[in-house]
């Protein structure tokens, strides 16, 4: 509760939380309000917003834009969360091993991290998805592969500063195993920055996913916002609404997650907030 009070002090974070709640609600109820397959050709093509019973219009094949947005919300949130989860896990393992052991392991792992940070991430993601063939799994893997280095660096830094503290030395004298010290003792102490970076990573994962889908690298069986915009771009002149509304959905969702992430940051590091 104390956490929420601190979180709510940031008005932007509250607004973000509300928007995110709406998007989550939309995703959870997509199959109730729009029970039909979003790819199905529901009716009159190229209807403007509000025409022929379409709240946000329909596209060139008569697919409902609003239905696509509702189902796309599910895709975006799912891929954003899954990819972040994988990236955070990989990053924690890499960073913890490097920071805890130091020496040659640290050196090798950090060189690897550096290499992955050097590679232009979006092109790398495109390449990975193109090689693995577009599917939910390949998109999640590709986003995770380009996102883990940031977590690894953060976790390594935390481990470096914590590994010589008294409580860790006490664990050594008690004869605890390395695994137990890493997972049970040090990791819980550096979780708050990881949570912050993780929440911001969900936003960038959603942006990457929409970019991939826009370029035609989305899972062909799953509706997504990027796909909607990519499919509507050729009709920009005659049907602006096909591209416009899914884009607003992406913008609001990413904005909301960024705001919530900043709110979590303020709440977890209250001193930082008071300083600025």
């Amino acid at each position: 509760m104390a956490f929420f009070k601190l979180f709510a002090r940031n008005r932007g974070a509250l607004i973000g939380l509300i928007i995110l709640g709406v998007v989550t609600f939309l995703a959870a109820t997509a199959h109730l309000f729009f029970p039909d397959d979003p790819f199905s050709l529901a009716g009159t093509p190229m209807s403007g917003p509000g025409q022929n019973g379409y709240l946000l219009g329909s596209d060139s094949l008569g697919r409902d834009v609003a239905a696509g947005i509702a189902h796309g919300a599910k895709t975006s949130l799912l891929i954003g969360l899954l990819a972040t989860l994988v990236a955070v896990c990989v990053g924690i393992v890499m960073g913890a091993l490097a920071g805890y052991h130091g020496g040659i392991i640290d050196n090798l792992l950090m060189r690897l991290t550096e290499m992955f940070q050097t590679i232009p991430s979006f092109i790398f993601a495109i390449l990975l998805v193109a090689i693995m063939k577009p599917s939910i799994e390949s998109i999640v893997i590709a986003i995770a592969v380009v996102s883990w280095p940031a977590v690894a660096r953060l976790v390594r830094g935390e481990f470096l500063s914590l590994r010589n503290r008294e409580f860790v030395q006490a664990c050594h004298t008690l004869g605890m195993s390395d695994t137990r010290i890493i997972l049970g003792e040090i990791l819980p102490n550096c979780l708050s920055p990881v949570i912050v970076i993780g929440s911001l990573m969900v936003a960038s994962a959603i942006l990457i996913e929409s970019g991939l889908a826009f370029l035609g690298l989305g899972d062909p069986n799953i509706m997504s916002w990027g796909f909607q915009i990519g499919a509507g771009r050729t009709l920009l002149r005659s049907a602006w609404w096909i591209c416009t509304f899914p884009g607003i959905a992406i913008l609001l969702t990413v904005l909301a997650i960024n705001l919530v992430g900043e709110g979590i940051n303020d709440a977890l590091n209250p001193r930082l907030r008071e300083r600025s």
């Binding site: 990027g226 771009r233 920009l236 884009g247 913008l251």
Partner: peptide, 21 residues
């Protein structure tokens, strides 16, 4: 904050709608 959250391709398309078309 807003530009940081906007997908590039969408900005491009919207600019085309407004300033070109």
């Amino acid at each position: 904050l807003i530009t940081y959250a906007t997908p590039l391709f969408w900005v491009g398309l919207m600019l085309i709608v407004v300033f070109s078309l």
